[in-house]
């Protein structure tokens, strides 16, 4: 080294210093990253989900809790039912974001009654839109979602009525724990649409259901669940009671214009249906379901989740205890 000129002028030496500086930067960056990301514990298996409370969408108004309309077309009956409750404007206000949850479980044509009828869904949406609300319609079908909304005619009805259809994608679900719920723990739920809504209206057909006893407005909330939810069939009554407590809707519309009296909940044949000519609209989903059960010639003991839901405080098991108004045409 001594034989080679002054340090500052030695190009080879300068090159070495430059490289050493860059190597130093590299070492520094790697070490900083290593320290920043260092994990002395390893995976803990702790995957606890967010604990949430769903909003309470009920609107407390004086007046009847249930309206029963008989012998009218679906569109007329929905309109008349809301009138008898004192008018939809008592429940839905301009600027409200209304989530309408129809039962669109299957890719089955409307005539077969396995899904909420497009006329009923459409009229509910139309009336809400007319009041200045923004309406989102969604359900997580058992069948493929696009097929269910398309074949059932609900998609077209929602579009005509001015609502927005949300065909749920996996990213629309979030695994959450609903506070106070027994089954809704770390379970995928349509959280976004629910928390974004200021009002919720359930629209359900009246159907036989071999496992649950009957599928009415409370069972309809099943469609808010994602994941491999069929596992809940092992305690379907407990689950529906959980849902009844978690989802406190503004209104429910139970369409018993025809009822699927056999082969439920899929049906598949016109002979599974009976003309029952009844539309039930109201604020108490338990009482609405109890009235709907009569259309299936069943009683509360056939459908244990109703008692569980009533005991949990989701509504009244005894229609005598709530104010019911009846409209019979013809």
């Amino acid at each position: 080294m001594s034989g080679q000129g002054g340090g500052g002028h030695d190009p080879a030496r300068r090159e070495v210093l430059k490289r050493a500086a860059k190597a130093g930067l590299l070492i520094g960056a790697a070490s900083a990253l290593g320290v920043a990301l260092y994990d002395p514990v390893g995976p803990t298996g702790d995957t606890a989900s967010r604990v949430i409370d769903l909003p309470d969408w009920r609107v407390r108004v004086d007046g009847p809790q249930l309206a029963v309309v008989m012998g009218r077309t679906r569109v007329d009956a929905v309109r008349r039912g809301f009138e008898m409750l004192g008018g939809l404007e008592r429940f839905v206000r301009p600027g409200d974001r209304v989530l309408v949850k129809p039962n669109v479980a299957f890719a089955s044509p409307a005539e077969l009654g396995a899904t909420a009828h497009p006329d009923t869904v459409g009229e509910v949406v139309r009336l809400c839109v007319a009041l200045g609300a923004r309406v989102v319609v969604t359900d997580n079908p058992i069948a493929d979602p696009a097929g269910a909304f398309g074949v059932s005619g609900v998609q077209a009805a929602v579009r005509r009525a001015g609502g927005t259809l949300l065909i749920p994608r996996p990213s629309d679900f979030e695994a959450v724990t609903v506070r106070g719920s027994r089954h809704l723990v770390d379970w995928p739920l349509l959280v976004g649409p629910l928390q974004g809504a200021t009002k919720v209206i359930g629209v359900a057909p009246v159907k036989d259901h071999h496992r649950a006893g009957a599928s009415l407005t409370l069972k309809n909330w099943y469609g808010l669940l994602g994941g491999a939810r069929s596992v809940f069939h092992q305690d379907v009554h407990g689950l529906v009671a959980d849902l009844a407590l978690a989802v406190r809707p503004t209104l429910v519309v139970l369409d018993g214009t025809t009822a699927m009296v056999a082969n439920g909940p899929t049906g598949g044949s016109l002979s599974d249906l009976a003309p029952t000519g009844t539309m039930i609209v109201g604020t108490d989903p338990v009482a609405a379901d109890v009235l709907g059960l009569a259309l299936l010639q069943r009683t509360v003991t056939d459908v244990p989740y109703l008692a569980l839901a009533a005991r949990a405080g989701a509504g009244s098991l005894d229609p005598e205890a709530v104010r019911v108004v009846v409209d019979r045409k013809g």
Binding site: F106, S108, I142, H209, H210, R211, S230, H233, Q234, D235, V236, A262, N263, P265, T266, G267, G268, S269, S271, D272
Partner: peptide, 16 residues
């Protein structure tokens, strides 16, 4: 020994 019958529920044939 657990209740289920999901298969029966979704069977689309009538009668099932």
């Amino acid at each position: 020994g657990r209740p289920c019958i999901v298969c029966e529920e979704v069977c689309p044939v009538s009668p099932k």
